[in-house]
Write a protein that binds this DNA or RNA. Structure first.
Lengths: 374, 374
DNA sequence: GGGGCGGGAACAATCGTTTTCCGTTTCTCG
DNA sequence: CGAGAAACGGAAAACGATTGTTCCCGCCCC
């Protein structure tokens, strides 16, 4: 009947108990502190009045906001929505809610968003933007904030993380190309301040070595960011006259899409003239012209696993740090086909024999094979 | 030096004033209540201690959370990220933060998310999921919650809304097809419980009439949702043997993408055998095979405008209700080309003469022309 | 010179929960 | 039967801000 929403006081009054008792009765953790009968009376009164605890008041007292801050580069990148949904869905099950912050790859913006979230007393962070050495990480570590790194790793910090086995993925991409007869393969590397940039480059190099192929510096160009524009620029650079490349491994789908643009500019046909393989298997990437061959990993699951790690951390700050790798798989589509015999003729053959790897469509990978220490 | 973050109390103590005074000094709205000298002392103390107001405590007292609830069908739909960013960016300027809720088109889920957000005391809602008659709307209206409808409208409620002039957009799509020589044009209509579904259908019908073309029921099929699967299903239905359609206007890009699938299934080539036009100009839709011709509207701006409307409403509950329409424009790409002469021959010519509408690439539209009342 | 006025700051009361600290009561068992 | 220990639940103090009210004091004016 009251106009204002019912408060704990009201419930207590209705149940003829003290507010403190009502609180105990309603809280699962403390319910055993009151008699069954009282608990029943309180619950019933709460029910009757349509009582909804005020999360703000609760937060003020308990210093927990049940809110998680998530930092990502840009929600517009189709890679992130499924990951974020994984996070949200999992966290929602435990009563947490997500605040999304877009950094646009800008350190100042990242700082702003981070501070803003700290001010709002988020209970933890999921960082998908961390660069290898990041002041935020130091700060978070010092403040003892629960943090999980997602799709990123950082050295020297005690943070749990979940990411993809990038080395394996890129290794498989190279092996695939080699099996198709390609030997002059270039790489568009991601930014080297970002963990994915370096690990994918490493995977590429390992893969080339394993296939007995040369991978000198002239065949590697570094993107300054994971964007279509950068992909296009790097594509041009890689395909400068005389390079003779027949295939490109791009560190990320966006870069690969940029390559498509470069191919158009240069009048090259993909896959006939030039092959390209991406990384991530973004939504809709299978509908491009041609459908992009790429390395897939379970996006949604990346989110749910990150959420699990973070929840562990929040519920028990002393829980062990976990580093989780998700297995990637190669998805063979239309952007890389066997090298035309004519072109193959004069080339030194690839040494790899990855027959056992190239299943009809997708190839689950095992961890460990091509992986290096450090 | 203190370990815990500084509180208003600390600041007050440092400035040798009462906490209340410190509060007033720090708050722009009440600063004039304290002397200049005191204000300076307080501000300085706050600065020195690195004071950050605790938003939770503030919320408890002021009953404003500076949080906005945003309900969308699914973040994975590439249409939404840019819209959401528009919202976030604009709201952030005013110190608001956004909670995103995905409903997956499920009423029960929508209800859950809505309640959850109300429990968290959001200061307002942006609804991009509203169906024409929605219990949520009634509830929100009764509770006097600030609400803005985005990309949706609803009848009989006093809510501001911002959406696209769907009639104009679809009208232009039809005119374009007619100008290309198509006359047997089908429509995949969106769900009729959703405002975009009905207004785009209306635009289609108006457009057909204006072009002097027949649009009987057999050429309209209703999707139950804006999904690729539904698009495929409806595409099949529309292209059943004997239909003789040469073009399809889809109420949304997802449905159009679904059509691509149906074409593949049926061995039809697009655009040679069958043309299709979408709606929304989702990100990446220009990179499909073939690039989709579609109706574009400014996504980001839709978000910022919705934010502005909501802020108005929050700051002054008596501000007038505003219904805002954004102008769409036709984007001509590769999924609709002039009908081959052979096919055109035996057909009754389209009556439209839309020369003035078909600019080289995009066509800004004027409101009013093909629009109907009610 | 006293009453009135008003600016400026202090006091105190919230906001709605949780939680610590204690009184009661009741139960158990020697 | 009485001592000690559970078991319950009430009182009150937070949590950190905002805000209505009171109070003090200097100043103006009659």
């Amino acid at each position: 009947m009251s106009d204002r929403p019912a408060t704990l006081r009201d419930v207590a009054a209705a149940a003829r108990v003290h507010p403190a008792t009502a609180s105990r009765a309603l809280n699962p953790g403390t319910r055993l502190l009151v008699s069954e009968e009282t608990a029943r009376r309180v619950t019933e009164a709460a029910e009757r009045l349509g009582y909804r605890p005020n999360p703000v008041a609760r937060s003020l007292r308990t210093r927990r906001s049940h809110t998680i801050g998530v930092l990502i580069p840009d929600l517009n990148n189709p890679l992130f929505p499924p990951i974020v949904r994984g996070l949200e869905d999992r966290l929602a099950k435990h009563g947490y809610v997500v605040l999304i912050g877009n950094t646009d790859g800008d350190l100042a913006r990242e700082r702003m968003v981070f501070d803003q979230m700290r001010a709002r007393h988020v209970d933890g962070f999921v960082l998908a933007t961390a660069t290898l050495h990041n002041p935020l990480l130091a700060e978070a570590a010092e403040a003892d904030l629960p943090v999980v790194l997602m799709n990123r790793t950082a050295q020297g910090y005690q943070f749990s993380s979940v990411s993809v086995d990038n080395e394996q993925g890129e290794w498989a991409a190279v092996a695939h190309l080699a099996s198709l007869g390609h030997s002059r393969i270039g790489h568009i590397a991601g930014p080297q301040e970002i963990s994915t940039g370096v690990s994918r480059l490493r995977g590429f190099l390992d893969g080339m070595r394993a296939a007995g192929l040369a991978a000198d510096e002239s065949r590697i160009v570094y993107a300054t960011g994971y964007s279509i524009e950068e992909g296009r620029r790097c594509g041009h650079e890689l395909l400068a006259p005389g390079s003779g490349l027949t295939a490109i491994v791009a560190a990320n789908d966006m870069l690969a899409v940029g390559c498509y643009g470069a191919f158009d500019d240069l009048g090259l046909r993909c896959p006939e003239d030039i092959a390209v393989i991406g990384f991530n298997d973004m939504p809709f990437i299978d509908r491009l012209r041609p459908p992009l061959s790429t390395v897939r990993f379970p996006h949604y699951k990346l989110g749910t696993e990150a959420a699990k790690l973070l929840l562990e951390r929040i519920e028990d700050p002393d829980s062990p740090v976990k580093i989780l790798y998700l297995a990637p798989e190669l998805v063979v589509r239309g952007s890389a086909v066997p090298l035309a015999p004519a072109a193959v003729a004069g080339l030194p053959g690839g040494a790899a024999d990855p027959d056992d790897m190239i299943a009809p469509n997708t190839v689950p990978l095992r961890r460990g094979a091509g992986r290096r220490k450090r």
